[in-house]
Nucleic acid binder design. Structure first.
Length: 502
RNA sequence: GCUCGUGUAGUGUAGUUCGGUCCAUCAUGACGGACUCUCGAUCCGUCGACCCGGGUUCAAAUCCCGGCACGAGCACCA
């Protein structure tokens, strides 16, 4: 045998038998998302947010990945509002539209199906009742603490052995509203000795008397996520679920329910938690509180990681999309530096962004010497198709950044300047040496604007001078030597820019 | 405590299914350089990783066993 031979010898032998078996090829990184299993019977995916606020950057991962898979397999996308909780994380009436809008912005399309769980109650109630009449659910009147003890000790609670009739009677009381919140809950009958405590007779329905912000007081009993989602996924024929790995036990709970109903559970993929490096975690509820207590100016506050805020700052949907697709769906918990999203965004916006001069701390200098009446400067250094502007220079006065002032400098695209006694003089329109190049604004064509910028927990509004260009609201421009901003307002009365990134 | 999951350069990823094609991919970052009338863009180069310990094998990022670390679930939230 070849036991004493080293791997090199073995490789040579293999090579002599079949060279292709050990051929060295440079390995490559897989592009795009990992293929899905079992796609031949159609692909239907879903994105199921709680409409208790607008979409955040974290949500956008769900939108992007699911939509991308649907696209890859010519499948369908379901946008489902999971709005069955009226107490802990109640829906925000406006959020439904916000989410639809952000969804469309991100994907450039509308979902194939839109569902509000709160409008599907008749369906859920039907299956809830079926569960009880078929004997795989029961009405449990333990308090949550009491049941916790049963769960830990792996023993049955007194209600577990109720008859179907008794369950149906109690259910009717829950539905009619004669029982108060907390009095009872409907559990799915699983097995109290299951090794995973989370799966032991998990709750499917609870009583809520607080009105639903959209549909009011029509129902007294509401399904919990695991039940509602399980039923609706089946009803919609969802083929693949991509969800956070914090919902892994949800999958397992729902599979037990599917077994009872005799259904086939969708294929499920998971991703880990994502946070932005150096930023605290923002939950929708946190943000909502912050807005209500006026710590934040609104959902599009530049400090918040909402899609609204990112849009306001000028991120492109394409950047967010390719960022998530490149990241894929690993189960690792990751902390992303904002810079890596910015890098993707820059790559996309740089070729089309006009270059504009803006000065934060302006100093007015008058320059003596020969100068044309105006100068013709392109809006983009590499792409002349972006256009150009004609800047009048008759006043020979310029605004420059205070910190840029020195003995010798060059006004970019214009002329070399030198300090002469108490003034400044043009020395050449050609570039003569490597003196610093600074940006400038002609006093003939200037206006003021506000620049909104956040730094940590602070928001700053800087009053700046900017060249008076015909900026368009919504466009992203690059401030010469500074970075990208989005034009938020541009009119006679108000001109506001929002800082994007460098 | 029980259950589940994850560990590849600073960061994020590819490769792990089925051991050899891996002295390990790509991007970002840092550093250096070229180019450029922006501190932008572009181009070139450099740096840098398989959580640890055993085992199996001619051969382990990949398989097995045992640790360790981190995260999540065990809600009448989603």
């Amino acid at each position: 045998m070849i036991v004493e031979d080293g791997p090199v010898v073995v490789r040579q032998r293999i090579e002599s038998i079949d060279p292709s078996a050990v051929k060295r090829t440079r390995q490559e990184k897989r592009k795009g998302l990992k293929p899905l299993d079992d796609t031949d019977r159609g692909v239907i995916l879903r994105f199921a947010p709680n409409p208790n606020g607008p979409l955040s950057l974290g949500h956008s991962r769900g939108v992007v990945i699911n939509h991308q898979y649907a696209k890859m397999y010519n499948g369908k996308m379901v946008l489902r509002y999971d709005d069955t909780d009226t107490v802990v994380k109640p829906p925000l009436v406006e959020a439904y539209d916000w989410i639809a809008e952000d969804y469309q912005w991100l994907t450039g399309s509308k979902p194939d199906v839109v569902i509000r769980a709160s409008e599907r109650m008749p369906q859920y109630l039907k299956f809830g009742e079926e569960m009880l009449s078929k004997g795989f659910g029961y009405v449990c009147e333990c308090t949550s603490d009491e049941f916790k003890d049963y769960r830990i000790s792996m023993t049955s609670c007194p209600h577990r052995s109720r008859s179907v009739d008794e369950n149906l009677t109690q259910w009717e009381k829950m539905v009619q509203g004669t029982m108060k919140p907390g009095d009872a809950v409907v559990r799915v009958l699983t097995d109290m000795t299951l090794p995973n405590p989370a799966l032991r007779d998990w709750p499917a329905w609870r009583i809520q008397h607080k009105p639903h912000p959209v549909i009011g007081v029509r129902y007294r009993v509401w399904p919990l996520l695991d039940f509602q989602s399980a039923i609706e996924d089946h009803l919609q024929g969802i083929s693949h679920i991509v969800r956070g790995k914090d919902l892994m036990d949800s999958t397992r709970k729902q599979m037990l329910l599917y077994e009872h109903f005799g259904w086939v559970y969708p294929h499920t993929l998971y991703w880990g938690r994502v946070s932005i490096h150096g930023h605290g975690s923002f939950s929708t509820s946190n943000m909502r509180e912050g807005i209500e207590s006026e710590i934040y100016n609104g959902w599009d506050d530049v400090r918040l990681p909402t899609i609204k805020s990112l849009r306001r700052k000028g991120y492109s949907a394409e950047a967010i999309t390719s960022f998530w697709i490149e990241m894929g769906i690993t189960q690792k918990d990751v902390a992303i530096p904002l810079d890596s999203i910015n890098a993707v965004n820059s790559r996309i916006i740089d070729p089309t962004s006009r270059r504009i001069s803006l000065v934060v701390n302006p100093v007015n200098i008058e320059v003596i010497g020969e100068l044309p009446g105006s100068v013709h400067i392109p809006y983009h250094p590499d792409r002349h198709s972006v256009g150009h502007r004609e800047i009048p220079l008759s006043s020979k006065s310029f605004l420059v950044e205070e910190s840029d002032l020195s003995k010798k400098f060059r006004l970019k695209d214009l002329a070399d300047v030198e300090k002469t006694g108490d003034g400044f003089a043009f020395t050449s329109d050609e570039r003569t040496d490597d003196r610093p190049i600074i940006h400038w604004i002609s006093c003939d064509l200037q206006t003021t604007c506000d620049l909104v910028r956040s730094e940590g927990e602070e928001v700053f509004i800087e009053h700046c001078v900017i060249e008076d260009a015909d900026l368009i609201v919504g466009e992203v421009v690059q401030l010469e030597r500074k970075g990208f901003v989005r034009v938020e307002e541009w009119s006679e009365e108000r001109r506001t820019l929002v800082w994007l990134h460098r």
